[in-house]
Nucleic acid binder design. Sequence first.
DNA 1: TTGAAAGCGATACCAT
DNA 2: ATGGTATCGCTTTCAA
Lengths: 348, 348
Amino acid sequence: MKQEVSIVDVAREAGVSIATVSNVVNGKGRVSTKTIQKVRKVIDELGYTPNLPARNLKTKRTDLIGVVVPTMKPGRLQDNPFYWDLLAGVEEGARDRSFHIILTGIDEATETFSFVKERRLDGLIVVGTNEGSQAVQRVTGLGVPAVFIDSYLKDSGLYQVNLDDRQGSYRATSYLIEQGHRRIALLIGDIPMERIAYYGVLHERWLGYRDALEEAGIPYDPRLMIKLPTSLAGGYKAADQLVELPDVTAIFSFSDVSAMGVLKGLKEKNKSVPGEYSVIGFDNLFMSEYTSPSLTTVSQNIIEKGHAAVRMLLNQIDGVPLSERRIVLPAGLVVRETTGPGPHQSSE
Amino acid sequence: MKQEVSIVDVAREAGVSIATVSNVVNGKGRVSTKTIQKVRKVIDELGYTPNLPARNLKTKRTDLIGVVVPTMKPGRLQDNPFYWDLLAGVEEGARDRSFHIILTGIDEATETFSFVKERRLDGLIVVGTNEGSQAVQRVTGLGVPAVFIDSYLKDSGLYQVNLDDRQGSYRATSYLIEQGHRRIALLIGDIPMERIAYYGVLHERWLGYRDALEEAGIPYDPRLMIKLPTSLAGGYKAADQLVELPDVTAIFSFSDVSAMGVLKGLKEKNKSVPGEYSVIGFDNLFMSEYTSPSLTTVSQNIIEKGHAAVRMLLNQIDGVPLSERRIVLPAGLVVRETTGPGPHQSSE
DNA sequence: TTGAAAGCGATACCAT
DNA sequence: ATGGTATCGCTTTCAA
């Protein structure tokens, strides 16, 4: 450590009061040009840097926002690059406004979010929680501006950023149907189907799948639901179950990483893609274009999701009235090489 | 906002002094069991949360560390999941010690690191800078505990965590040679070769490549250096150059993502892997096992890298004497499917 | 065992 | 245009 120069040192050295120094630092109040220059000079000479935590004591603002993402089993951040892209969006948006972000992995079941109050964070961005989760009430109980991403919370008073998951899922499924597939498996996540309504994102995507089925007059078959995690490893294992399902010619996997796992698993079983199975993912990660065969997937602008969330949060912090508390980003469909014609070609 | 309960409120309500409250909160000093219970009770009732920034004013500690990673062109975080894995390691290590991390993307050329002093961060982890970079002097000039990851800085006084890049690169190259490859291209990064010594990580890996060549008596051919970014897109473009290189049968790409790009590019050119070209990457990202064909690569424990860095930093902050200021993690070689026999099978 | 009081570094109101 | 000073919430001697 070297220096401990405070506003007092600057004031003394410049021969003015600390109030004046404070004014020139913040560009507030009326200070003569002459004094400003003098103070500036001293600040440079002394290498003075304002102490933000001290300032916070008076201003009640930390210019700090928290970003919480769910952790994997052992309390480690998820192994899905999706979060990195999202973080890139949030970080960029925050930096533009000279906010900084504190990143934490949390265990939804035990996290109390006390750090938000202890550190007096100005706001919080929560990723991927669900209706009924402890986390939601705890966060709202904080009384701190917050934005939930990918959480589908009923409470219309909450600020949320989502993707149009249902529509995206509908489009993906419809596309498969158009291609002539009838029995389409779903890698839906490691959840009990009877509680699916509690898993917002998964539920919406599941509904989109059913929408498409219904529209095409194809009966929904619950046996086609593969209940494994939407992770790389989950996808890999899903391939085992997939090949046991009779007459299934396609699988829709609820994340790109899990679709990659499926691809790998099928390859090891010498099943061709898209020959024997069509595979479709979700997210359109930047690397999904580079898998082989390249992945057909539901696309979303993850960076923009981060931007939207941080923009919404900062407006909230600034007290800017928001017309809409819920932002829904559009989902697209990117057709690449993992999908092909199925057995029921519609030539009509 | 709802509450503004401070230590004063607790003291008043509990009928004790703020000093006593402070003591029970911090478990310091001598306080009777009875008083402790009383104060605890009031704290619960009032929902009191200590104000860390205020505490910092006295203690000079923020329990906050900064993690800075380089940004891509437009000031956005890099599109390489490597950073996410690294961050996962750092975050986990920090959380275990109830430190929080502030993540920032920086532009090495312009960043002044003033936020480190303004926010009174306890320490800093810098990823991927280089000897001679402005960033290094600026960081050391801060007088704040710091750890550099993947930076290969000469100054032995600096705390650093690196991989044994040279050894890893040597092993990869040797393996290709053993397999019968003689002309091996290198996707080395978007840098001028005459300045390679300034790019620590790339330089070390380049040296490892040369070590292996020399050992095998194969002359070094500078025309085999492909100077494109070690990104997905860079790898993709590298394939164009690769196929123009006469007699080349293998490429060693200095990152897994770029190797994935190469794979994609070769596939589009109908070049088989590992038939016509063997491809080897670097990093062993969790997804590299799932590409198709799965990627042979130099492996490193990225999570452990993050752990090591944060451990080193926290010890430094705590004033624990470190025997060694430079940690070098071992590199391995994971042989998977993108490498195969070359034209010069050594049957001896 | 407990409390009074002096800071820590900055802001902001109120005088001058 | 400046400066004096109370204040923010907490830690830490030093007394009692």
